[in-house]
Nucleic acid binder design. Structure first.
Lengths: 242, 242
DNA sequence: CGGCGCCTTGAAAAGAATCAAGTCTCGTGG
DNA sequence: CCACGAGACTTGATTCTTTTCAAGGCGCCG
């Protein structure tokens, strides 16, 4: 195990709630190891009942569902600090797949010990429910964007979401954040075709609002981006880290 | 209090998991009363921090978000047995509104006692997390439908979802289920215009697949409906009742 | 050097939104 | 008792966004 919970780099970030010494100690026992996934690896498969649960420590990935006709809906982007496998943990089966986009390092937990956590650490159990509710909230936001906005607003919305989330994680340097996804991923997330996504990105570039190339998103006009995506420039609420 | 938990009509339904006598007893203490909402009433408002949480006992409603430009995204339909206010309970604030469509009866719980539940009833806490994960799953399905399907498939998908959920609740009589929503609600849920929704419904009617009028959905060809909506005719998984 | 993955761009086709009436039902008030 | 208006549902015509189709370019790796 490379990273012990006492010195977890994520916990230092203001985005995540404080933990008591006792909680940290409990989590370090809960954590059974570390796992590194190479780019393109499927971490959890839809329909699978995994005996392991994870917290992303480093790297990025994405969650997606595959429809009967073969099309893919990206239902979320996995960033450091995100919990992976909750559905499998409590419902017994994942309802979406999770794939590593970059190389990812993850903390590994045993699903079998989840019940112990609920019995012995009500506070941590509550936090887990908080995480589930946060996930629901994020999906609701995304649904509203996909359902109601036009192409330009959708793209602006998702880029703004990346920008604020990554900024909250301390990955913003001079209004630049890492964005190692492909245009196809964004297209599949927002329910647009790849071609239209590409043309819309070109429009945002032409307007001088953002530039996205070489896996890096540069936001030249944060306010305009937020406005185009019907978002307020508010930073994400604090949430627990599992 | 009209309905006591010992004789809760919902618990008899096979859709919901069994509860021990002890759990039922705990829930009956947790339940502080009953609340009746008239049609059109807003039960919880987006942004509100409610001190009450609810379980729908009877009647139907809907969850929705309002965007900056005034458009509305329906993020879910509330049916009997659904828990309302989870976000407020664990995150401190609702991120969508909930409105009664028909007259609704609800069990009322105090948010302040939620923490007691986590401390004293780990099993119930686990169930609450299960409910949260189920909610996330349902939203993911809806996002996939809204993001990837065309108009006809979207409408077929949502009608099939209603049909299977209501059937699981025992409300199916001769392939007829109650559906007291307006076409505008379905349109706002699936990201379509009212006009297009209407024309698509007409198409399904012309095909002889379904009829929806007078607040009643009649499914003439269940298999064809499921197929059009890229769904399998599988019934919903069993889940806990809070 | 060749092939593959990803990005880019133009043109044509299709799907969905918008616009504009018109119908029907039901509850209300003259 | 009937006219009236509000709200929901229908339907046709037009406009426009988005998809699909097609092709070319660029960078990287074997």
């Amino acid at each position: 195990m490379k990273t012990d919970c006492e010195h977890c780099p994520l916990r230092q970030i203001g985005l995540f709630e404080e933990m008591t010494k006792d909680e940290v100690h409990y989590m370090s026992r809960f954590k059974t190891g570390e796992f590194v996934a190479q780019p393109g690896t499927e971490i959890l498969a839809e329909g699978a009942s995994s005996s392991q649960l994870y917290t992303a420590l480093d790297g990025m990935g994405l969650r997606y569902k595959t429809l009967e006709d073969g099309s893919r809906q990206v239902v979320g982007f996995v960033l450091p600090g995100d919990f992976i496998g909750l559905q499998s943990g409590v419902m017994g089966e994942m309802r979406h797949s999770v794939e590593a986009t970059t190389r990812m390092t993850m903390c590994v937990f045993n699903r079998s010990e989840l019940w112990e956590l609920f019995k012995n650490q009500p506070r941590r159990a509550f936090d887990l429910t908080h995480v589930a509710a946060t996930e629901e909230f994020l999906l609701g936001e995304m649904l509203a964007a996909v359902g109601q906005m036009d192409g330009l607003a959708k793209i602006a919305w998702v880029l703004n979401r990346f920008f604020t989330r990554l900024t909250a994680l301390g990955l913003n340097e001079n209004d630049q954040v890492p964005l190692p996804y492909r245009q196809q991923d964004v297209a599949d997330a927002m329910g647009l075709s790849l071609v239209h996504t590409n043309k819309t990105l070109a429009k945002l570039r032409a307007k001088g609002v953002v530039t996205w190339s070489d896996d890096t998103l540069t936001v030249h006009r944060p306010d305009e981006l937020a406005q185009l995506g019907f978002s307020t420039g508010v930073k994400p609420a604090q949430r627990p880290l599992i």
